[in-house]
Design a binder for these strands. Sequence first.
RNA 1: GCGGGAGUGGUGGAAUGGCAGACACGGCAGACUUAAAAUCUGCUGGCCGCAAGGUCGUGAGGGUUCGAGUCCCUCCUUCCGCACCA
Length: 838
Amino acid sequence: MEPQNPASTPERADSNRYNPSEIEQKWQAEWEAKGQNHADDNDPRPRFYNLVMFPYPSGDLHIGHWYNFTGVDVYGRYQRMNGYNVMQPLGFDAFGLPAENAAIKRGVQARKWTLSNIENMRRQLKTMGGIWDWDREVVSCLPDYYKWTEWLFLKLYEAGLAYRAKAPVNWCPNDQTVLANEQVLSDGTCERCGAVVEKRDLEQWFFKITAYADRLLEYNGLEWPEKTMTMQKNWIGRSEGARVIFNINAPDGETIPVPVFTTRPDTLYGVTFFLLAPEHPLLDRLTTPENRAAMTEYQAKARAESEIERQSTDKTKTGVFTGSYAVNPINGEQVPIWVTDYVLMGYGTGAVMGVPAHDQRDFEFARTMNLPVKLVYQPDGREINADEMTEALVHEGSVVNSGPFNGLPDSKETIQKFIAFLEEKGVGKAEVTYRLRDWLISRQRYWGSPIPMVYCDTDGIVPVPEDQLPVILPENVNFRPDGLSPLKYEPDFINTTCPKCGGPARRETDTLDTFMCSSWYFLRYCDPHNAEAAFDKAKVNHWMPVDQYTGGPEHATLHLLYARFFTKALYDLGLLDFEEPFRRLFHQGMIRSEGKKMSKSRGKTVAPDALVEQFGADAVRSFLMFLGPFDQGAEWNDKTEQLLIGVSRFLNRVWNLVQAGFNAPAGEFVTTPEIEKEIRRTTHKTIKRVEDDLGHWAFNTALSGLMEFSNTLGEIASREPGIYGNPAWKEAIETLLLLLAPLSPHITEELWHQMGHDDTIHVQRLPAYDPSLAVDEVTTVIIQINGKVRDKLEIPVGLDEDAVKAAVLASPKVAQAVGDGHPKKVIYVPGKLINVVV
RNA sequence: GCGGGAGUGGUGGAAUGGCAGACACGGCAGACUUAAAAUCUGCUGGCCGCAAGGUCGUGAGGGUUCGAGUCCCUCCUUCCGCACCA
């Protein structure tokens, strides 16, 4: 038997074997020499800014990075082949603790350690053949970058958006630094290292992100995952309500007005007690001598409890009576003041009015402490009794026991009426409260951007003048065993002169949160070498906002929130013409190892280098995309790697399919219009499928579509050996290469050239889908009897319904099932299925 | 506790309410080979059957429909987020 697959034809020269590493190196060098991945600012094509989140240079590129970057690169290449001028930069988020820890542990310089990691990662990254625009690379720990980080800090300071204040802050005892609220997980642990975070009262630098709370709740024109927007909205936590002043009669005889925040001023007549947080500063004054001991004990207990214990919702309510009373401003009633740990000092005013009938927490508190419950709403159509209630009545019924307000429905309007009344009496006003706190940006660490501020005994806090930037971070520093920042012991760094008075002054030794570096890096990519400014406004306005941003969902309330705030602040400063940095956002899935994210800090990473060496970058890229939907990620285990074989075989088949065309003997082009049509049909069906899939990040099904296509072509070639000279065949092979090019850029470039093209495949336009060429001539109709598949029938496309029904009813199986009578019902789905109900 | 996603062969996964398991991996058999590798061909969800075929089958149980992996209800498992925010 003659070999059916042309690949095994003995004539095929061995030199024409698919040799990935050879062609990959060749083309990578060629692309780099031509600079064809550099996006020109003045290119006439429409721009497409394809951005991947700034990686941290942890040392080597593991398979998780490859997965992430490959998906982004496939998408960028796809858009470039759609005719866009794609800008796809990459850089390194190079400040941060791991470098400092390496310096402490192993005595290497943080800068050296970081830069050598970057060098290694850059080298590894280049092997994947991405269209990274290396001319635009930014490295955040280098002075030409952090100079502008400092400068932007000064701009925000001038705008009143940066300030220094003493506040209760999060302290990570392991990392020896304060953290922003966003860097503390909901279980009270450090987002970086997992240590339990403590509260400390410290003077720190903040950005006034709360001033942008309302604007951060708008997502005009953004195509973001709903979930991410919801997470941000919840984090910002806007609530509308009222501030109501209660007068407190202190034991010392004075009357102290104490405000509370409530979303339910319409339940004011139902207040039966008043609550303060254990940390509330007034407690000392309000506690009467007979309650003092219990109070001191309670406060101590609350302090000792971790945030997790304290905020647990299912523990029973606790509290202590102060002995003092507050006056309800709406009816003059005196209510007892209690302390409880479910009132938080950090939210609202740290004081709450207790309405047990209509708030579940207050209800539980009242039942535990035997405090009265007073209904000020009754459900419509029935009456409930406060003594028999088992839970609070929330948002139901009409107002009762509330003087002039009785009979009003539970509604926004009713709340407005109460607020109007409070305002009239001067005891309250409408107010909006947020959960969001200001962004704490100073860190007691060495390896970060210096904060360009000095402290002068005469002039206080003084910003470093712009022309003295950057404040250079010293490189040869001595780490101390106490874990404190070495900058504190660096006299050459600390001692300076005051820019105002010229007298002796001290530099700020805290450094900036690295999230500040990543809050503007996407702007610097637009103008990376600018020595005169952070960026040129026109260039940034040309490229921004980012058309497609891709990164993990874990940054929803961290980087993604900060970057939006930063962009809005810079917009207000007139530095930008747009308010939102990232128009479209996509979260790729992650490669997991034993259920956890693969990352160096968690150990257990898989290096791709050996795989790339053995199978080639094209195979590794395509294999990673073949694992499943890109937003789903994959579990990495011993079996995962086996799937690489299949993709590698596929690339070999593609290679051999193209070689077969060159090796075909000339002059035997026997084809028929039917075969030509068949080839064009499968070609155009594939174009439709694969291009749709690529545009929707469905790279796994795009590849299976291409595999089917190449299998079909191989099958046709073995059936019709004279097909190779046919134009339809050539079109099919070129289509295969073009559609595969984003996923496997090297092999397709090589074969494209072998086919006689002089220019690169990667800036060709993707083939256009022609529906008229994709239509089938015959189609298979599934025949069901009572919903079960019983037979199939080939019919010409477009055959009318009656003819199909007649043919089906005449078929022996159906005739047998129907018997003598008539079918009860016949359902016909045109061209697809017919269901005969008997 | 609340909100969202997911649960399909031995494995990764595919399926606008219309042939479940595409495409691959692995396995079995065969071709080529002195042999192996590579490559190619065929088969490969379970059960019954020599076969034709039948029958069961998408986490569990109900429902809607001529027809459900897909829609609805209840529940289980798992991942993610939130969790006393007044």
